[in-house]
C-alpha cells in the first residue's frame, strides 16, 4: 500500500469526496434514518438511501480510479456475495429449527446449510484459487489481507468463547457446545492451512505476517474502543455529579394517604381458584 503525498488537483479530491466518501456516509445515515424516523415510508426510503451508498462504494474503483481508498470498495464488491450467502444461510438454519415465532419450513434448513457451506468455499477460493480480489492482474487487493485473517481468527476465537460459555452458563448444552467447538476448529484449520499452504497469489509467509498484523489490529481496536467508552462514562459521571441534589418533597398528607389506601383496597383481592 503506497498512498503518495497529495499532489493532486482539487478536482480529483472533489470527485473522491462525492463518489466515495459521501456514499460511505450514506450507509450509516440511511440505516439510522430508516430505524429512527417516525415518518411514513421512512424505513424503505432509508434502506434505499443506504443501498445506493453501498452500490456507489462498490463501483468507486471505476468511478474514482485515482483514489487508493476505493480499493476498499473493490473488496466490498468482491466479498459481499459470499458474506451474504453465509449470513442468509445461517438465518435459514436458525429459523427452520425450534423457534416460537417466525418459523420457516423444515426444508429451508438444507438450503441454509448449502448456502453457508458455499459461502465459506467461495471465501476459501479467494485465498487458494483464482477468485482472489485483484486490483490489476497479479496485484492482490491489499485490504483482502486485512479482511481475511481478521475474519478467520475472530470467528475461531468467538466460536471457542461461545462453546465454553454454553458449557458454563447453559443447562444441558453439551451438544450445542460441541457444535461451536467444531466451528472454532474448522476456522482454526483454515488458519493453519493458510499458514502452511501457498495460494496462487498469496504465500503462506505473507498470510502469517498479515495474521499477526490482524491480531495487533484487533488488540488496538479493543483498547481504543474501551478508552473512548471510559472517557464517555467519565464525562457523563462528572456532569451528573456536578448537578445539585434533587429537592425532597413534603410527606403525603392525611387525606392523600386515605385516597391511596382506598385505591389500593379497590384493586386487591381476586376470584377464588
Amino acid at each position: 500500500m503506497n498512498i503518495r503525498a497529495c499532489s493532486k488537483g482539487m478536482d480529483e479530491m472533489l470527485v473522491a469526496l462525492f463518489l466515495f466518501w459521501i456514499p460511505v456516509a450514506m450507509v450509516p445515515l440511511g440505516l439510522w434514518y430508516s430505524m429512527s424516523s417516525p415518518l411514513k415510508n421512512a424505513s424503505s426510503r432509508g434502506r434505499l438511501f443506504a443501498f445506493t451508498g453501498v452500490v456507489l462504494i462498490c463501483i468507486s474503483p471505476w468511478t474514482v480510479p485515482s483514489s487508493p481508498s476505493t480499493a476498499a470498495g473493490h473488496l466490498l464488491g468482491a466479498i459481499i456475495g459470499p458474506c451474504m450467502l453465509i449470513l442468509l444461510g445461517i438465518y435459514l438454519i436458525s429459523f427452520s429449527g425450534n423457534v416460537p415465532v417466525g418459523k420457516l419450513p423444515r426444508s429451508d434448513r438444507k438450503l441454509g446449510v448449502l448456502m453457508t457451506g458455499f459461502g465459506f468455499i467461495w471465501l476459501a477460493g479467494m485465498h487458494w484459487w483464482i477468485l482472489t480480489p485483484q486490483l490489476s492482474p497479479n496485484e492482490v487487493n491489499h485490504y483482502w489481507f486485512v479482511f481475511w485473517p481478521t475474519f478467520i481468527i475472530l470467528t475461531s476465537c468467538l466460536a471457542s468463547c461461545s462453546a465454553v460459555t454454553l458449557l458454563m452458563i447453559g443447562e444441558q448444552r453439551k451438544a450445542e457446545s460441541n457444535a461451536m467447538f467444531i466451528v472454532s476448529g474448522l476456522s482454526f484449520s483454515i488458519l493453519i492451512l493458510g499458514l502452511n499452504v501457498d495460494g496462487p497469489l498469496i504465500t503462506a509467509d505473507e498470510f502469517r505476517e498479515h495474521l499477526w498484523l490482524a491480531v495487533a489490529d484487533l488488540a488496538g481496536i479493543t483498547v481504543g474502543t474501551l478508552l473512548s467508552i471510559f472517557v464517555f462514562a467519565l464525562v457523563i459521571y462528572s456532569y451528573e455529579r456536578s448537578l445539585p441534589a434533587p429537592k425532597s418533597i413534603s410527606p403525603p398528607t392525611e387525606s392523600e394517604l386515605k385516597q391511596v389506601s382506598t385505591l389500593i383496597a379497590s384493586h386487591l383481592g381476586g376470584e377464588d381458584e
Partner: peptide, 27 residues
C-alpha cells in the same frame, strides 16, 4: 483500514452468534 477491519469483525460476530443460535434452535 478501520472500516475493513470493522466489516470483518461484524461478519465474524454474525457468524459466531448465528451459529450459536442455530445450534440451540436445532435441538
Amino acid at each position: 483500514h478501520m472500516f475493513v477491519s470493522s466489516g470483518a469483525i461484524l461478519v465474524a460476530m454474525g457468524v459466531a452468534l448465528g451459529v450459536t443460535f442455530s445450534a440451540i434452535t436445532s435441538q
